[in-house]
Amino acid sequence: MANASVIQGNFIKMVSHKSGLSPTMVNSLRTGILSLIGILTFLLVWQSTANNIDTSLGQFPGPVQVYEQIGNLVSDYQREQEREAAFYERQEERNARRLAEDPDAEIRFREYTGQPTFPAQIITSLKTVAAGFLLATVIAIPLGIACGLSETLYSAINPVIQLFKPVSPLAWLPLVTMVVSAVYVSDDPMFAKSFLNSAFTVALCCLWPTVINTTVGVGSVNSDLINVSRVLQLPTLKHVQKIVIPSAIPFIFTGLRLSLATGWMVLIAAEMLAQNPGLGKFIWDEFQNGSSDSLGRIMVAVLTIGFIGFILDRLMLFAQHRVSWDKSSVLK
């Protein structure tokens, strides 16, 4: 291994010497080329395997078909937007006409209710995962800090955590659904019930990684630093703010990233299972639809889910980099 990296280093030096590019540029060029080769190989393998898989809905979609479907989804979206604009235009015309005939006429406004488009489903899913993740974070971090500080609380809560941690959040889904529809009764609901169901389910699975990692992080604060705090007689709140949280930040973020990743995975499954709006429902609907385009569209959704998951993780990493005091540490 050591040899390989030496050879690689020499290679970079040699190339940078010959081409006049700086070594960092050569290095990033190299990474770029390697990624490109990786992606191209993947596309090639994908296309050739896809050609050999026949399903009852036609051939398994390869990259070309997926690309076509992306185009279709975009034009679907544009068509839907035009329809919506036309709908409101007609409604306004109609109302204006009525008012002209009879100034006292009662006029009505209706919301446009068309098919949810693919981008709309993405946005719904993002909102839901954000809500569930935030809710979980707001509970999990303080709970984790409290458990890390107090051995007593930890002993009391740990069995509960260990019991619920391995439960698939999907098992909660029926319970959450029933509780939400029983408790959340309002004539003019601020949130749709389906939104709450999905968000709570996501929150339930986002809780544990953050609680556990925060607890561990708080428990492993350097004992010298704790002694400094004791000698200074820092009040608890200040102790937490100045000493505990900064030390535990890497652990907290590890927990948050795990939470967000599982939350995103679970959300898609919950949407499929409960028919709640979002990317999961999109996939399920396409599957039920069973047209020749369906598999291609599902594949677009799969890739989108992967890409969004990746972006979410990068965002967390960026956030960690922003709040972390140790700028020199390499975050991966």
């Binding site: 350097n222 010298d224 630093l225 002694n227 400094v228 004791r230 000698v231 200074l232 007689q233 100045k242 000493i243 900064p246 005091w325 140790d326």
Partner: peptide
Amino acid sequence: TPGPDRAVVFQNHALLPWM
């Protein structure tokens, strides 16, 4: 109980690394 009237210099400095 510990208190600031008895300050302690620790063997390995014990500075808060984030300050």
